[in-house]
């Protein structure tokens, strides 16, 4: 979609991906409506909605993408171009617990490397990998705004700061 907003017009053809669009509970639909209500232009809700679809389906799978395209009357390719730009939007499955270790300078000089290494050994996966049981994905990510409490990681949306190997064991242990 090219840049000037005034050019955006609703899509006229229904998209056919050869899959059925995802469906969601009335509750989730209501949540989606609340987001759409915030903006004068539907497309603005694309990121909030992607997070919801991701929460409900694990990642943006084709039915999810199709749902978003229909809901926002965009082309599936418009969903794709946006989804692939943002590092928090997953277009492929991730583990139930996504461990994101901050690797940027302040954390790095405060021992982020050790934390990654520790998780790696503990879970038996390298950064970027997911455990066989699909429970844990380990990633190294850029600055999460916790530089003063380094080293740290985020598991899904939860911050865990001032980490030490012991603390890591505790946290991972506490995850059902």
């Amino acid at each position: 979609m090219s840049t000037t907003l005034t050019q955006i017009k609703p899509l006229s053809q229904p998209v056919d991906l050869g899959v059925e669009a995802a469906t969601f509970s009335a509750q989730v639909e209501a949540e989606i409506d609340r987001h759409l209500a915030k903006y004068p232009v539907m497309r603005s809700a694309i990121l909030p909605l992607m997070f919801i679809v991701q929460r409900e389906r694990g990642y943006l799978d084709p039915p999810g993408v199709l749902y978003l395209a229909n809901r926002l009357s965009l082309r599936v390719t418009d969903i794709w171009e946006v989804a692939t730009f943002y590092s928090m939007i997953n277009t492929s499955p991730v583990g139930k617990y996504h461990i994101q270790v901050c690797k940027t300078l302040s954390c790095k000089i405060r021992g982020a490397g050790k934390i990654t290494e520790h998780c790696s050994n503990k879970l038996g996966i390298k950064p970027g990998e997911t455990t066989a049981d699909g429970r844990f994905t380990l990633s190294e990510v850029e600055c999460l705004g916790s530089c003063g409490t380094a080293p740290m990681f985020q598991i899904n949306f939860d911050y865990h700061e001032d980490l030490t190997p012991e603390k890591v064991d505790q946290i991972l242990g506490s995850l059902a």
Partner: peptide, 18 residues
């Protein structure tokens, strides 16, 4: 949704427009 560039004000606005 994870993009440092969206801190730049015009990129932020593009992003806010979806």
């Amino acid at each position: 949704a994870g993009a440092y560039i969206c801190g730049e004000e015009t990129a932020l606005l593009s992003s806010l427009e979806g």
